[in-house]
Measured scan of single mutants.
Amino acid sequence: MAMNGTITTWFKDKGFGFIKDENGDNRYFHVIKVANPDLIKKDAAVTFEPTTNNKGLSAYAVKVVPL
């Protein structure tokens, strides 16, 4: 089920960042999981599918909501 969130941290040079989800949890995401990576920036609103990996909470099918 899709969730909403906000990008809180973005490491462009490393290709990953973190999203604060609607429950207040931080989720890892990688640029290859983003549909529109050219719009990635700190504080951008996103929708995504929540999941977990071996390191904890993460996100896939991430879409940055255009302003």
Rank of each mutant, 00 (worst) to 15 (best):
K20P: 01
H30K: 06
L57E: 04
H30R: 07
A2L: 14
A59R: 00
M3Q: 04
K55T: 08
G56R: 12
F29D: 01
K20H: 10
I40W: 04
N53F: 09
D38H: 13
D13H: 12
T47E: 08
P66K: 11
D21V: 02
N36V: 05
G15H: 07
T52W: 13
P50D: 02
K12V: 09
D25N: 09
M3C: 06
D38S: 12
I19W: 02
F11Q: 04
K12S: 10
K14S: 07
A61I: 05
I32Y: 14
N53R: 09
G5L: 03
K63Y: 11
T6N: 07
D13R: 10
K41C: 10
E49K: 15
M3T: 05
M3I: 08
P66N: 12
D38R: 10
I32K: 15
A2P: 14
V46K: 00
T47F: 07
I19L: 08
A61W: 10
L39I: 07
T6R: 12
N23F: 11
L67V: 13
N26C: 13
T47D: 03
K55Q: 11
K55F: 14
P66T: 13
A2K: 14
V64R: 01
A44Y: 05
V34A: 07
L39F: 11
T51L: 11
I7N: 00
N4F: 12
T9V: 15
K42S: 06
T47G: 03
G56N: 06
V64H: 02
N4Y: 12
R27K: 00
K33V: 15
T6D: 03
Y60D: 14
F16G: 01
D38P: 07
V62E: 00
T52V: 13
G24M: 04
M3W: 06
G5M: 01
T52F: 13
G24L: 04
L67T: 13
A44P: 01
F18V: 06
N36H: 06
P66D: 13
G15N: 08
H30P: 06
P37D: 03
K42G: 04
D25F: 09
K63W: 11
Y60V: 15
I40K: 00
F16K: 02
G5P: 00
K33N: 15
W10K: 00
I7G: 01
V31K: 12
T6A: 06
V34T: 06
P50A: 07
G56S: 06
M3K: 05
K41E: 11
L57P: 07
K42W: 06
A61K: 13
K20T: 14
D38I: 08
T8R: 10
E22L: 06
M1Q: 12
G17Q: 02
N54F: 11
V64A: 04
S58D: 04
K20I: 10
K63A: 09
K12H: 09
V34M: 05
T9R: 15
K55V: 09
E22C: 09
D38W: 15
V46Y: 02
V64T: 03
F11N: 08
L57N: 05
N4M: 13
D38K: 11
N4I: 08
W10P: 00
G17V: 02
V46S: 02
M1I: 13
A59G: 03
K12R: 09
I19T: 01
F11A: 03
N4L: 09
S58R: 05
F16M: 05
K12F: 07
F18A: 03
N4W: 13
Y28C: 06
K14H: 08
Y60I: 15
F16Q: 02
M1N: 12
D25Y: 08
I40A: 05
N53Y: 09
G56C: 08
L57C: 05
A59I: 03
K63N: 10
K41P: 01
N26L: 14
I7E: 00
F16W: 12
A35C: 14
T47A: 05
T47K: 08
A2H: 13
L39D: 10
E22A: 09
Y28G: 02
T47R: 09
N23L: 09
V62T: 01
D21T: 03
F16P: 02
K55W: 15
M1G: 14
K41H: 11
A2T: 15
P66M: 10
G15Q: 08
I32N: 15
F29Y: 02
W10Y: 10
K42Q: 09
K41G: 06
K14Y: 09
T6C: 09
G15P: 01
V62W: 02
G24H: 04
D43H: 14
N36P: 02
V31D: 05
V62K: 00
F29C: 02
A45E: 09
P37H: 05
N23I: 06
T6W: 13
M1V: 13
T51R: 13
G5E: 01
A2E: 10
Y60L: 14
I7Q: 00
T6H: 11
F48V: 01
A59W: 02
V34S: 05
I40C: 07
L57Y: 07
A35N: 10
N54E: 13
K55R: 13
A44G: 05
E22N: 07
D38Y: 10
M3L: 12
T6M: 09
V34P: 03
N36S: 05
G17D: 00
E22S: 10
D25A: 09
L57R: 06
K42L: 12
F18T: 06
F11H: 07
N54Q: 13
R27Y: 11
F48D: 02
V34F: 05
F48G: 00
K63R: 12
V34D: 04
A44C: 09
G17P: 00
F48S: 01
N23Q: 07
R27T: 01
E49W: 15
P37G: 04
F11V: 06
K41F: 09
I19P: 00
F48W: 01
V31A: 09
P37I: 06
F29S: 01
